[in-house]
């Protein structure tokens, strides 16, 4: 057993971190929220060049994957830098198409997967109902189903799973503002049928697992960034003649935030390994990772907001971009209750 990331995986994470630091992602997020997706697409293209989306696509469709662990490593870095756009939905759509392909629908898979791998195609995915049984966080409401597709207004392809049918949707309803302004939500309307039948249900269940894992990994990165920024602030902010980070009440909240993140991370890694090995326990492992990582991120967000004082309650502080995303991811692709139920499902 060597339950540690190897040098190559660490280097990959470091290079993404460096690239995204240089990309000034907070400005990119603010532009995305205002409807200007061009800077976001430029970042997307660089991520694709680094191989991020290819990790979700099999080699036979010009990808490098599927490599769930490397994908989780990458998504953590994207979360750390609050990269906007349907990142999770794109890799989940790749999982859906890949699985449809292996179940006999190679033409559909071949039509879309190379574009996803190369970064040319930004995809969104929406599970409207049903058929997520066996998915990351159970079935029924809360298991990753939603009437909304993320960033469907700007995506190149919007895939919608409704029952045992998958459609490609061209028309979406008006954007419903999310509490995280970088998440542009809208209802997919109509569309052309791409595939139908039991294989769609199986592929959708797989896609929901990948989406839950990717969301968990992203949440981990968000939490790490929230903690790092808040530690930095607590070292510099002075009250009563001392750095507030020297006070126990402040220290202990930050220590608790670190503990939650440190214990969520191995759950994410183990879930990725389970998904890669295609073992039966992968659904429960992913659910455990999803609920733990998202709760760790949300609690880091609460701590970050609080320790920044009134400053943390402002929109203009970039911290707000992380705080609001952490809350949104908690409910996306598996609510806490659905994930916990899945952990105990027989």
């Amino acid at each position: 057993m060597r339950f540690l990331l190897d040098d190559e995986q660490r280097d990959f994470a470091r290079s993404l971190d460096a690239m995204l630091t240089a990309a000034d992602t907070p400005a990119v997020v603010r532009a995305w929220a205002a409807g200007d997706t061009a800077p976001g697409r430029a970042v997307w293209a660089r991520l694709a060049e680094a191989g991020v989306f290819a990790l979700a696509v099999p080699e036979r469709h010009d990808g490098l994957g599927p490599l769930p662990l490397e994908l989780a490593v990458a998504l953590r870095e994207l979360g750390r830098h609050v990269v906007p756009g349907p990142v999770v939905e794109t890799v989940a759509a790749a999982a859906l198409l890949d699985r449809l392909g292996t179940l006999g629908d190679e033409a559909t898979a071949a039509n879309w997967l190379p574009g996803i791998a190369s970064g040319k195609t930004v995809a969104s995915l929406c599970l409207i109902s049903g058929n997520a049984s066996g998915s990351g966080c159970g079935s029924g409401s809360g298991s990753g189903e939603s009437p909304y597709a993320l960033d469907a207004d700007s995506a190149d392809a919007v895939f919608v799973v409704d029952g045992d049918t998958v459609r490609l949707t061209e028309v979406t309803g008006p954007v419903q503002p999310s509490a995280d302004p970088a998440r542009r939500l809208s209802r997919p309307l109509g569309g052309t049928v791409l595939a139908r039948g039991p294989r769609v249900s199986a592929a959708a269940a797989h896609a929901a697992e990948v989406a839950a894992l990717a969301t968990a990994a992203q949440a981990l990165g968000l939490g790490r960034a929230l903690l790092a920024r808040t530690v930095e602030y607590a070292r510099q902010r002075t009250q009563f003649g001392a750095a507030i980070g020297s006070f126990q009440a402040v220290k202990h909240r930050l220590a608790d935030a670190l503990i939650a993140l440190e214990f969520a991370e191995p759950l994410v890694h183990a879930a990725a390994l389970a998904l890669a090995a295609n073992v039966e326990s992968s659904g429960a492992e992913i659910a455990a990772a999803k609920v733990s990582a998202c709760e760790a991120a949300c609690s880091a967000a609460r701590t970050a907001l609080h320790l920044h004082g009134a400053l943390g309650y402002t929109e203009e502080l970039d911290l707000s971009l992380w705080i609001r995303k952490a809350r949104a991811l908690r409910g996306a692709w598996g609510t806490p209750a659905a994930c916990r139920a899945r952990v105990l499902a027989p």
Binding site: V231, A234, G245, S246, F247, Q248, V250, K251, A255, I259
Partner: peptide
């Protein structure tokens, strides 16, 4: 333990 975590893992300053 939380003091140790905060000071030695997070690098926060020592205090009372």
């Amino acid at each position: 333990q939380r003091d140790i975590i905060a000071e030695r893992l997070l690098g926060l300053p020592k205090g009372r």
